[in-house]
Simulated scan of single mutants.
Amino acid sequence: MNRLLVLETIIQMKSFTKAAEALGYTQSSVSQMVLGIEKEFGMQILKRSRNGVSLTAEGEALYPYIVQTLRTYQALQERAASLKGLETGMVRIGAITSVSCYWLPELFKKFQEKYPNIEFVLQQGDFGMILDWLKRGEIDFGLMTAEYGDGFNKVVLHETEMKAFLPSKHPLAKLDSVPIEKLACDPFILVEGGGYSEPMKAFEEAGVIPHVRYRIQDDYTIMAMVEAGLGVSILSELVASRTDFDVVAKSIEPKVTRPVAAVYRDKATLPIASQYFIDFLVENQKALQ
């Protein structure tokens, strides 16, 4: 099993040397373990290039099964640990920026007060990236909109309001709430959703077409662009709670919301630590403000 872990780490870091350092092995022993796997399967799995280490075509075909084997073994270890209490384990999460920045740090802290030896691996991405990570087994569950991702199980944790973000001196900034039709009059900065967009759905339902000038993945970059007067945007209310940008966030008419959910394949097959953390999120829904 250690050989498969070494192989996964090499792929993630694209380097034998970095993988050896991360896992506490010599580079020679790492190379020998990879050679052992390739000899066992009778094919070359890794190839080196100027861009680092990557999978061969045969390696690409085998890699999903390698990841699945590692996660199953991890679940076995954690299930054994759970019989004597959750003492160790790892929680792998994919989350959108607003959730990872404004909810997870405090939730990690509270969870580790009860289970101090649990480790977290957090990847930030858009909706499409999170679903890809779930399909490939790179994360245990995602924290994203419940409106996207057919075929996955979902537990809604919070109904987050999406707000109009405007330059502080914009004429619409004086309003208590902004009609969505008005947001279609300015250049629009669209947060990249990776296949799904609450703002675009809201515009469609209102029968208007926004003038999308920019498509940006990062909320902070969008707020900087709004501050600079490059356009207006619609973002989660969460990002307005901790910002020094000279922008205002206003409710939209009609109201636009995002149901934030824990999204996963089959909870029963998740590592025990991740099952516990999902239950913890459900128990702490009231704290998600």
Rank of each mutant, 00 (worst) to 15 (best):
D150W: 04
A240R: 14
S251V: 05
K18Y: 10
K182H: 05
S31D: 00
K163A: 04
F141C: 12
A173C: 05
M13W: 09
R213T: 15
I66G: 04
S100P: 01
P179E: 05
S274A: 13
L175M: 15
S29V: 07
A273R: 03
E181T: 15
I272E: 10
T17I: 12
R79L: 11
K110C: 00
L70W: 09
W133D: 02
S29D: 02
S100C: 00
A249G: 15
S100K: 10
I139K: 03
K114T: 14
D150P: 00
T56A: 11
F188Y: 10
I209G: 00
Q289R: 13
P171K: 11
V256D: 02
S233W: 01
D140I: 02
E38Y: 07
A173Y: 04
L288F: 11
N51H: 14
Y25H: 12
Y214W: 13
E87R: 13
L107I: 11
L7E: 01
R50I: 07
S233N: 00
I180E: 03
V239A: 04
G85C: 05
A173S: 15
L238D: 04
R265K: 15
S236D: 00
Y73V: 07
S197D: 06
S15K: 00
F111Q: 07
G231F: 10
L4C: 04
A164D: 03
S54N: 12
G36P: 00
E205S: 12
D246Q: 13
K109G: 00
V208I: 13
K169D: 15
I189H: 08
K135M: 11
I37D: 09
S100R: 12
K47P: 00
G151W: 09
T257Q: 06
L183A: 06
L134C: 07
E38L: 08
E113Y: 01
G229N: 06
L107V: 07
L46P: 05
V53M: 05
K47C: 04
Q77D: 07
L107W: 06
K174T: 15
